[in-house]
């Protein structure tokens, strides 16, 4: 599918994920969690296709099952007792429900991060860092370059060493790896002297740094960012006033102000599905233009 959201300004991407993931982590409410899960799953599918399902079934689902079991086993609060364990502790309905919602929450967070990693590439992260912590941003971009370079060097050293050893058991492999890491470190540090020289030669640290980037904050970025901020504001207000409130122990109780609940659900849902909506909108626009 057409992924126009990825091409938006990093601010838009970042604040969208920030809002959605923060709410998902902190609001343990069945409907909010379910909305978040649906948003994460659908956006994940549009980004990665069937790969996300593989990730979900192989990695996310086992973790969530563990979490779902873990809760009722260790948490004995709640009024509705279903039966007693052998050690005398009760199994309660509340803890089962809480476990289920937590499992769903965990799944949504993990899935949101999959999309996050896909959308926020190194350029965007360095751009965002560069505003706040310029030196660390430089460190990150340097490391991004050094890692593949060192990995390549390490591999060559390792293979040259491994040639000389006849039987490679795990102990010998670790020995050779350690020696190769050590050798790579020497090489890396000695070369760093030149890199530092090249940075100084090009004026690093001589005056206040500015930032080059290709990201331009366009009108549509402005609109999207406004939507995100608006939804975040509406959600915050309704949450502070009691919307999207859920309590599990000692008994399950949810916020009962219908209007506040609805405004929380809708504003959060809008943010969750914003990337998907935007992609669909762009796709339609493209089709009608042709």
């Amino acid at each position: 599918m057409y992924n126009e959201f990825t091409k938006c300004h990093p601010f838009v991407n970042f604040f969208c994920f920030l809002f959605v993931i923060t709410v998902t982590v902190f609001f343990n409410h069945p409907i909010i969690t379910a909305v978040s899960f649906a948003g994460a799953m659908i956006y994940g599918i549009t980004l990665l296709g069937s790969k996300i399902l593989k990730y979900f079934f192989l990695f996310v689902l086992p973790l969530c099952l563990l979490c779902g079991i873990f809760n009722p086993v260790f948490n004995h609060q709640g009024m509705t007792i279903l039966f007693y364990f052998q050690d005398g502790n009760p199994l309660t309905m509340e803890s089962i429900v809480y476990g289920g919602v937590s499992a769903l929450l965990l799944a949504s967070v993990l899935l949101w991060f999959v999309s996050f990693n896909q959308v926020m590439d190194s350029d965007k992260i360095i751009y965002l860092f560069g505003r706040v912590v310029p030196s660390l941003a430089t460190v990150i971009t340097m490391v991004m370059r050094l890692v593949p370079m060192y990995a390549c060097h390490f591999k060559e050293v390792y293979r040259l060493r491994a040639l000389e050893i006849k039987k490679l058991n795990i102990y010998r492999r670790i020995r050779i790896s350690l020696a190769s890491v050590s050798s790579t470190t020497t090489w890396a540090l000695e070369n760093a002297v030149f890199t530092a020289d090249s940075m100084t030669a090009r004026g690093y640290g001589s005056s206040k740094r500015s930032f080059y980037s290709d990201f331009v904050f366009t009108n549509r970025d402005f609109i999207l960012l406004s939507v995100i901020i608006l939804t975040a504001a509406v959600f915050s207000v309704s949450a502070v006033m009691g919307g999207g409130y859920a309590m599990y122990f000692p008994y399950i109780k949810m916020g009962d102000n219908h209007l506040l609940n609805m405004s929380a659900y809708v504003s959060f849902g809008l943010a969750c599905f914003l990337p998907v909506f935007f992609n669909v909108w762009e796709e339609l626009k493209w089709r009608f233009m042709k």
Binding site: T141, M149, N191, F194, S198, M199, R209, S210
Partner: peptide, 26 residues
Amino acid sequence: RPDNQIVTHKLWHEMAFAMENLGFDK
């Protein structure tokens, strides 16, 4: 050595590196 002098990990960033240090505007 060409490898030792490069600082950043993208070509565009490397081209702009010296100018960034000198505080050129965007």
